[in-house]
Design a protein around this nucleic acid. Structure first.
Length: 426
RNA sequence: GGAGACGUGGCCGAGUGGCUUAAGGCGGCGGCUUGCUAAGCCGUUGUACGUUUAGGCGUACCGAAGGUUCGAAUCCUUCCGUCUCCGCCA
C-alpha cells in the first residue's frame, strides 16, 4: 500500500511511477475521497467533543441531584447525528482502502524504465557453457531414462503440474532442499523457519496476493484459507502487526516450503516437464531491514542466492527488471536465470526484490528507533534461494554424461547418502 | 467435536456505568546525588487519525465487530484467540 499522504503531496510523481509499471490509476477519485473523509472527520469529532462536554455536565448535575433532562435530550440528538456521520466515515474509508489496496508499489528510481521483459538488461553472467561434444538430452529424456520422476502418475493423482518424484529423483530433490537450507543457515547466517503452507486472507493481503490476485491461488473456502504461492507469505507475516526494536534489525529468515500456484491464464505455456508447475519446492530468503539499508541488503540477498548456483557450478546470468516487468509489490527486482543446455534456454530460478515499506504498511510491520523517536515502517525484502524445479532441469542437463548417467557436483555428496553423486538406472 | 476459565499499555496488574483524559508496580528515558557500580530521590513515558505558523488542541483505541445508554474497559449479542480438562488422531 502506498502512503496516502505521499499520494496527496506528490501526486504527479506517484502517478508517473505507476504509469511506468504500465498501470493507470485514477488518483483524482482517491484524492476526492480523501478530502471527503477529512471533512467528515472534522465534523464528527467536533460533535463528539460537544457530546463529551455535555455528558460531563450531566454527571456533575446528577451528582448534585439536579435535573438534567434538557441536557440529556440535547445530547441524544447529537448522538444521532454522530451515528450518521460515523457510518459515512466508515463507508468512505472502506472505499478508500479498497482502492489503495489495488494500487501497485512505485518503482525505485534506480529501476530501469521499460515496457516489458524484452527490455530487461543483463547485469551479470557467470560460468562456462556446457558443451561436451555429444548430443545433449533434455531433462525429460534424462528423467525418463533414469526413472527420476513420473509425470503420468502425478497427473493421475492430482492432475497435470503436480510432479511425482521417484527413487533417486526424489532423493535428489530432498538433497537440493537440504543443501540450500544448510548453505544459507550456516554460511550466510539466516535463521531457519518452517512455516505453515496455508495462510489466511489477512496474511495474503500483507504481501500483496490479495485482493487483486485471488484467482492465482488455491483456496480452501470451508476454512477461509489459501495455499501459499511462496513462503514469502507466511514468513513476512511472522512479524505482522509487530513493533521490532531497531537493534534487532536486520532480521533474516530462511524457509523451505512447498509452493502452490494455479497459474491462471498461463495454459499452454511451458507445459512440459518441470518448467511450470502447480506445486513445487522452494527455499526462500526473507529480510526485515531498516529503511536506510534495504538496498544494500538487496545486493547481499542477491549474492546469497547467486552463491548457491556457483557452489553447484551452474552457468547463470542476472537480469534487472524494467519498471513494466516489476511485480505488483516490488520497487526493484533482480532475476537469476540458469542456462539449461538441453533445453537451450535460460530458466528463471530466483527473483530478489525490495518491497520497501509497501508490504510493511499493509501488514503494519514497524520498528522502534534505538534512541527513542518515532516508530516507523521497516522495509521487507525477499528472494528465492532458489526454486528447485528449474534448478533440477539445469542441473540434470548440465551434469549429464556421454554414457547416459548424471554426475552431480561433489558438494551434494553428503546429501545423496548411499545413492552417491552418480545417477544411473538401478 | 464437548465443557469450563480467561483476553486491560513494552511487561505485571487494579478497575462491574460518570472525579479513570486506565490506579499502582516493573522496565525504558532524562536529571540530581556519586571515585566506579549499585541503591536512593525527582521528573517523564503508548498508537492512529484530524487540526494548527508554532507551542498546542481534539477524536478514537482495554482481543474484534455490532448494540444498549446523555455517557461503556465496565451491560448485551456475535465472532476470534489463549489456557485447562475430556474426546478423536499421526
Amino acid at each position: 500500500m502506498l502512503d496516502l499522504q505521499k499520494i496527496r503531496e506528490n501526486t504527479e510523481q506517484v502517478r508517473q511511477g505507476i504509469l511506468n509499471k504500465n498501470v493507470n490509476i485514477d488518483f483524482d477519485i482517491i484524492l476526492e475521497l480523501d478530502q471527503k473523509r477529512r471533512d467528515v472527520i472534522l465534523e464528527v469529532e467536533d460533535l463528539k467533543h460537544e457530546r463529551n462536554l455535555l455528558s460531563q455536565e450531566v454527571a456533575k448535575r446528577k451528582k448534585n441531584k439536579e435535573d438534567a433532562e434538557d441536557l440529556i435530550s440535547q445530547t441524544r440528538d447529537i448522538g444521532q447525528r454522530i451515528k450518521i456521520l460515523d457510518d459515512k466515515q466508515r463507508l468512505i474509508e472502506n472505499e478508500l482502502d479498497q482502492l489503495l489496496l489495488e494500487i501497485p508499489n512505485t518503482p525505485h528510481m534506480s529501476a530501469p524504465v521499460g515496457a516489458d521483459a524484452s527490455e530487461n538488461p543483463v547485469v551479470k553472467t557467470w560460468g562456462k557453457r556446457y558443451e561436451p561434444g555429444f548430443k545433449l538430452q533434455t531433462h525429460l529424456e534424462i528423467g525418463e531414462a533414469l526413472e527420476l520422476f513420473d509425470f503420468p502418475r502425478g497427473t493421475k493423482i492430482a492432475g497435470p503440474g503436480f510432479p511425482l518424484y521417484t527413487g533417486q529423483g526424489a532423493r535428489l530433490e530432498r538433497a537440493l532442499i537440504n543443501f540450500m537450507l544448510d548453505f544459507h543457515i550456516d554460511k550466510h547466517g539466516y535463521k531457519e523457519v518452517l512455516p505453515p503452507v496455508m495462510s489466511n486472507a489477512r496474511a495474503m493481503t500483507t504481501t500483496g496476493q490479495l485482493p487483486k490476485f485471488e484467482d492465482d491461488m488455491y483456496k480452501a473456502p470451508l476454512d477461509e484459507l489459501y495455499l501459499i504461492p511462496t513462503a514469502e507469505v507466511p514468513v513476512t507475516n511472522i512479524h505482522q502487526g509487530e513493533i521490532i526494536p531497531e537493534q534487532d534489525l536486520p532480521i533474516r529468515y530462511c524457509a523451505y516450503s512447498s509452493c502452490f500456484r494455479r497459474e491462471a491464464g498461463s495454459y499452454g505455456k511451458d507445459t512440459r516437464g518441470f518448467l511450470r508447475l502447480h506445486q513445487f519446492n522452494k527455499v526462500e530468503l526473507v529480510k526485515f531491514t531498516h529503511p536506510d539499508t534495504s538496498y544494500m541488503e538487496l545486493e547481499a540477498l542477491r549474492r546469497d542466492a547467486e552463491e548457491i548456483l556457483e557452489a553447484l557450478g551452474l552457468e547463470y546470468r542476472v537480469i534487472e527488471l524494467v519498471t513494466g516487468d516489476l511485480s505488483f509489490s516490488a520497487a526493484k527486482c533482480y532475476d537469476l536465470e540458469l542456462w539449461a543446455p538441453g533445453e537451450e534456454r535460460w530458466l528463471e530460478v530466483s527473483s530478489c526484490s525490495n518491497f520497501e515499506d509497501f508490504q510493511a504498511r499493509r501488514g503494519s510491520i514497524r520498528f522502534k528507533p534505538q534512541g527513542g523517536g518515532k516508530i516507523q515502517l521497516l522495509h521487507t525484502l525477499n528472494g528465492s534461494g532458489v526454486a528447485t524445479p528449474r534448478l533440477l532441469v539445469a542441473l540434470l542437463e548440465t551434469c549429464q554424461q556421454a554414457d547416459g548417467t548424471v554426475l552431480l557436483p561433489e558438494i551434494l555428496g553428503p546429501y545423496m547418502g548411499s545413492a552417491g553423486i552418480r545417477l544411473k538406472l538401478a
